[in-house]
């Protein structure tokens, strides 16, 4: 059976009609046409699908879309303010935090969740916070530098 729900993604309400088993990730990627969030695993281990749900990070691949009904969702597509990149996005580019870019959407969301709660994290706090986001390309160095630089910029 399908159920009606309204997903508020990046500030826009999207009415949808979906089956209970559908993940938030698959609905946002296909029905809503926002494939910026990625799917990298079957078991909530990679973080490529991370979104903010009411301001908190969630692995959207393993979250039922219907449970997000009426709640605020932020994806990587919602980070930039119009044409203006978010400091995290800019610093990811400047500090070598992006190579293949597949982990980047989840990594940026995860980093945003961290900075929203803890605007001046230590390096270790950054590393712990990003540990649910696997990156195979960068060795995390550029990413950690980027989060530090963005934190400094936002402060």
């Amino acid at each position: 059976m399908r159920y009606d729900a309204v997903l508020n993604v990046n500030g826009t309400d999207f009415p949808v009609e979906i089956e209970p088993h559908r993940s938030l990730l698959s609905v946002v990627r296909t029905e809503l046409g926002m494939p910026g969030s990625k799917e990298g695993c079957d078991d909530s281990e990679c973080g490529a699908c991370m979104m903010l749900l009411d301001g908190r990070p969630v692995n959207s691949c393993s979250y039922l879309a219907l449970q997000a009904d009426g709640r605020k969702i932020v994806t990587v597509e919602g980070l930039a303010d119009g044409g203006e990149l978010h400091p995290l996005q800019r610093q990811f580019l400047a500090q070598g935090g992006v190579q293949c870019g597949f982990c980047t959407p989840g990594m940026l969301i995860s980093a945003k969740a961290l900075l929203d709660q803890n605007p001046a994290p230590s390096e270790d706090e950054i590393r712990i916070a990003l540990s649910g986001n696997l990156c195979r390309c960068t060795g995390y160095q550029g990413i950690v530098r980027a989060v530090q630089a963005a934190a400094a910029e936002i402060a």
């Binding site: 969630v58 961290l114 916070a129």
Partner: peptide, 9 residues
């Protein structure tokens, strides 16, 4: 438990 996403959810 898990990562910060797991702990929040």
């Amino acid at each position: 438990v898990g990562s910060h996403a797991t702990r929040h959810v």
